[in-house]
Amino acid sequence: MNNFTVKMPTTIQFGKDALSKMSVQLKADGVHSALVVFGGQSAKISGNLDRVLAALKAADVTPVLFGGQHGSKTGHQGSDWASIQEGAKKAAEADAEAVIGLGGSAVMDMTKAISFVSKHVDVNLGDIANQSLAGRDRLQTITIPTYPSGGSEADAFTEVFDAETNEHVSLLDLYPHYAYLDPTLTYSLNDHQTTQAALVAFVQQTLNYLGQGSEIANGMAKVILDSLINNLVILKQDLHNYDARGNVMWAATLTPQSLMNAGTDDDWMSFYVDQEMLQRWLNLSYRDSTLMVFPHWLKRIAIKNRANVEKFMLNIVFDGQRPAGDLVDVGVDVLEKQFTDFGIEMKYAEPQTNEQKAHLEDLLAEVAEADLQDYREMLQACIA
Rank of each mutant, 00 (worst) to 15 (best):
N2G: 02
N3A: 12
F4H: 11
M8A: 12
M8R: 11
T10K: 11
F14T: 11
G15H: 04
D17A: 15
L19R: 08
K21Y: 05
K21L: 10
S23T: 14
S23A: 15
L26Q: 07
D29H: 09
G30T: 01
L35W: 03
F38Y: 14
Q41F: 05
S42P: 06
A43H: 01
G47K: 00
D50I: 14
L56E: 13
V61H: 14
V61N: 13
T62G: 15
G67V: 12
G67C: 11
S72C: 15
G75R: 00
G75L: 03
Q77T: 04
A82P: 05
A82M: 12
E86L: 08
A88T: 04
E93Q: 13
G103A: 14
G103S: 15
G104Y: 03
M108F: 03
K112W: 01
A113Y: 08
K119N: 05
H120A: 09
V121Y: 07
D122G: 12
G126D: 08
D127K: 05
I128M: 06
N130K: 05
S132Y: 02
L133M: 01
G135M: 00
D137K: 14
R138Q: 12
P145G: 06
P145S: 10
D155Y: 03
A156C: 03
T158S: 05
E159S: 06
E159I: 06
T165K: 09
V169R: 07
L171H: 06
Y175G: 06
P176N: 10
Y180M: 03
P183Q: 09
T184R: 04
L185D: 03
L185M: 08
S188K: 10
D191V: 09
L199M: 15
N208P: 00
N208M: 00
L210P: 11
L210R: 14
G213L: 15
S214Y: 07
A217L: 08
A217M: 08
N218R: 15
G219H: 06
I224F: 04
L225T: 02
S227N: 12
I229F: 14
V233Q: 13
L235Y: 07
Q237W: 09
D238K: 13
Y242I: 02
N247L: 13
W250L: 10
P256S: 01
P256N: 01
Q257D: 12
S258V: 06
S258Q: 12
L259A: 11
G263I: 07
T264Y: 01
Q279C: 00
R280D: 11
L282C: 00
N283Y: 12
N283M: 13
D288I: 07
T290F: 02
P295H: 09
L298N: 05
K299I: 08
K311S: 02
L314E: 08
L314G: 01
I316T: 01
V317Q: 11
G320K: 02
R322L: 11
P323S: 04
G325V: 08
D326A: 13
D329F: 14
V330S: 02
D333P: 12
E336Q: 11
Q338M: 15
F342Q: 07
I344W: 07
E345R: 12
E345Q: 14
E345I: 12
M346V: 14
Y348C: 05
P351D: 09
E361P: 01
E361D: 03
D362G: 07
L363C: 10
L364W: 03
A368K: 08
E369D: 10
E369Y: 04
E369K: 08
D371S: 15
L372I: 06
Q373K: 15
D374C: 01
R376F: 03
R376T: 05
R376Y: 04
E377F: 10
E377P: 03
E377K: 12
I383A: 05
